[in-house]
């Protein structure tokens, strides 16, 4: 009985320190962003975001990157992972290994190789970023979709649909997709969060996306940069919270 663990004062203190460490920057960032002229608190920095130079272009480019990355990710990963579950169970390990490689090859190294291999017409367009973001997101998208497809009986569903004469695109759109809807949403959220936060490749390939723009703004206006940081973190957090809600629901169904 003496060994039953309890939350004693030692552990409680430790947890308190960690909580303080995580909450303080949130509070401080908000306080900092609300510092107005003449020691008066105001939220005018947030109001200035939209009128800031370059804002429209940055939002436009980032949005385009998000859409292209998500589209390509779904287009490539959903059929691939479905195929793995349907016909190539033996290759699952290999596919998983390949999809995890972007965790071993850091973006800062990958960008070196990309600049050295890609043809000029691709290097001249920011959409090369989207093409690489698909790769960077793969460790997460593979896992999400793999878990989603592992939870349903793909083989039976596909055989039934094919047996009743539906073509492959119908199988994907009306059988597979609705059954792994939460896994698809999960990988979309992760991909969006990744694109909105990716700084390394964008800055080294000299494109102005949302994160690199914040860094640029920060060189002259710290208050505005902090406000933008809060804005972008809040957005990413909402996405990630939605993701964990989706995951919980998926687990609940299992």
């Amino acid at each position: 009985m003496t060994l039953t663990p309890k939350l004693g004062p030692g552990l409680g203190f430790g947890l308190g320190v960690v909580a303080f460490y995580f909450l303080m920057p949130l509070v401080s960032a908000f306080e900092f962003s609300a510092r107005g002229a003449g020691n008066v608190y105001s939220l005018e920095a947030y109001g200035r975001i939209a009128s800031q130079y370059g804002f429209k272009d940055v939002i436009l480019l980032t949005t385009r990157l998000v859409f292209v990355t998500v589209f390509l990710t779904i287009l490539i990963m959903v059929p691939t992972v479905t195929w793995v579950h349907l016909k190539a169970k033996k290759l699952r390990r290999l596919i998983e290994f390949i999809s995890l490689l972007p965790l071993v090859i850091p973006p800062v190294v990958l960008v070196l190789g990309v600049l050295a291999t890609m043809p000029n017409y691709l290097k001249g367009t920011p959409m090369l970023l989207a093409l690489e973001y698909v790769m960077l997101a793969m460790p997460y998208t593979f896992r999400a979709l793999d878990a989603g497809l592992g939870a349903i009986d793909v083989r039976t569903l596909v055989d039934a649909a094919r047996g009743l004469g539906s073509p492959w695109h119908t199988v994907f759109m009306r059988i597979i997709a609705p059954n792994i809807r939460s896994a698809i949403f999960g990988s979309i959220f992760l991909t969006v969060a990744l694109v909105l936060g990716e700084y390394t490749m964008a800055s080294l390939m000299l494109w102005e996306t949302f994160p690199t723009w914040i860094a640029t703004v920060g060189q002259s206006e710290a208050t505005l940069a902090v406000a933008l940081s809060i804005f972008s973190l809040a957005f990413a957090w909402v996405l990630l919270l939605a993701l964990s809600a989706v995951e919980r629901r998926q687990k609940g169904r299992k």
Partner: peptide, 21 residues
């Protein structure tokens, strides 16, 4: 939940958050 969120927090916004702290 917070861990899932914070573990993915990095980059420029994190740097500015600490500058403000």
């Amino acid at each position: 939940t917070a861990s899932g969120v914070f573990a993915n927090t990095g980059g420029v916004p994190l740097a500015f958050m600490f500058i403000a702290t």
